[in-house]
Design a binder for these strands. Structure first.
Lengths: 267, 267
DNA sequence: TAGTTCTGTGTATTACTTACACTATTAACT
DNA sequence: AGTTAATAGTGTAAGTAATACACAGAACTA
């Protein structure tokens, strides 16, 4: 049941789950709980950070805390709930604040970079099923920061929400691809670039040119192409990978917003 | 192991898997196989179409064919391989052919619509882990059709590949969200729109306005907003949902390409 | 102190993938 | 034709996982 589509059971339940403090409270009957919900969540996050999301089983989390599997269910209704809580907990970093120069586009780029950093800090996040727009306190903080920039050029509410969703989706999925590729490459003692060129070469070896003229042409040129556009993390030498080139795509999306709003900056 | 990050085991293996005909061959020793790989894959696809990807277990697929679980492993090395094969098999529909008027933008929109139709025909596809750009014969056919349009305005190879990847990502993830929401709503006997407004209302009830000024303002206006931009399937009355409004975002992305290439149409 | 309620534990159930050994089959070779 | 060797489908079992359920003991309330 881990990564099937989780029943967000009417968004309401999700919001309740993520916003209910669930702190100890004054004094109830029975034995005092030795754990707290946030301790459980923190342990799970730590485990995921260290060994990946597939290491997060109720057993492993419980073991990490020194308790039995079933004890966790006193703090969390199900594993799916735990994952939801983990996702919001992992977004505890602070998103960029408002810019002084009011340059929404630079602000949006900053925000994207921060999101990338966030995902890099907790790579397992990109593997969690995303039900929809964020609902938890931390998720909303990030949404606030993103919307603030995206709304500035004068998008309507639903437009702004949609564009922000598109940006996060692209960032998340691109990073997921990169993580997958890095992992696969690493298992084979290779670099991502090896894997990419293996894909290009492998396909070129299999495709008949006349059946797929565009693909073969593009793949052929891809191999030869030298100039990688300076991208999101040109600073770090990561041996290539999808995110490195992502700057181009993000620029196009922001271009699209600019073209639509005609460069104005009010609302 | 179903939906962990699958080891694409160097893209090469994936390509080999997807392109090796694996057809009966002349005559080998031992009992004649009673099944073929494609029969297995077809059965799995049929099962997924009918009951969703979570119904696809080796046991269910085998049962559907009237064989035992283990017999399937004569045709497929692992469940992950089966999923890979299913993904490509499900893309058997024919993508749009080249336009006569050479209007790349209209062509790209057509292509997007066709992708949406494809995903609607096999909703489980959006739940499969995507390792990277397509590698299978059918996937490449779709890539050919998409690249043909996207390349036309004069993008460089890596740029075109990236923009196409962004488009598919956005389409797939948006549809996944919609399917999730529809499913959740359905389980509670509601419409998607109910779910959406539950999200808006739920959040508004929880957020403090001054901590999240932009979000509260935007959510407030969202509730009031009347004009839904005519979107991808304004033809079908599906009671709202993410895809309905997606046209706007896609338009921005295509705007961005147009702004970049300056409206020229050659290469 | 008696009663009640809640915590953490132990056990069992269910569902899944897949390794391995076994039998029955059938082509290739003598 | 008879032998050999490879191969197809079966049965069983191991390993991992989530989680339902009952219970022992703790700690508050009356």
């Amino acid at each position: 049941m881990t990564s099937e589509q989780p029943d967000p059971a009417a968004t309401t339940d999700e919001i309740r789950l993520l916003w209910s403090g669930h702190e100890p409270g004054p004094a109830r009957r029975g034995p005092r709980p030795k754990l707290t919900r946030s301790e459980v969540v923190t342990a799970a996050v730590r485990l995921a950070d260290a060994e990946g999301i597939e290491a997060v089983s109720m057993q492993r989390v419980a073991a990490a805390l020194g308790y039995t599997t079933m004890s966790l269910y006193r703090y969390v209704d199900s594993k799916d709930d735990l994952l939801l809580l983990m996702a919001d907990a992992a977004m505890d970093a602070t998103p960029p604040g408002p810019r002084e120069d009011g340059d929404w586009r630079a602000g949006a780029e900053e925000w994207c970079l921060a999101v990338v950093a966030l995902y890099r800090a907790h790579p397992w996040m990109v593997r969690l099923p995303v039900t929809g727009p964020p609902s938890g306190p931390n998720g909303i903080r990030w949404m606030e920061a993103g919307l603030r920039e995206i709304c500035a050029p004068g998008l309507r509410p639903s437009e702004a929400v949609q564009m922000l969703l598109i940006l996060t989706t692209v960032l998340r999925e691109t990073l997921r691809m990169e993580f997958d590729m890095r992992q696969a490459a690493h298992r084979h003692g290779q670099q991502i670039s090896d894997n990419e060129s293996a894909w290009v070469q492998g396909l070129l070896g299999v495709l008949e040119t006349d059946a797929f003229p565009t693909v073969t042409r593009v793949l052929g040129q891809l191999g030869a192409e030298e100039d990688k556009f300076g991208g999101l993390d040109s600073d770090s030498e990561r041996g290539g990978g999808p995110v490195e080139g992502l700057g181009f795509g993000l620029d196009r999306i922001l271009d699209g917003i600019e073209a639509y709003t005609g460069g104005r900056t009010a609302d």
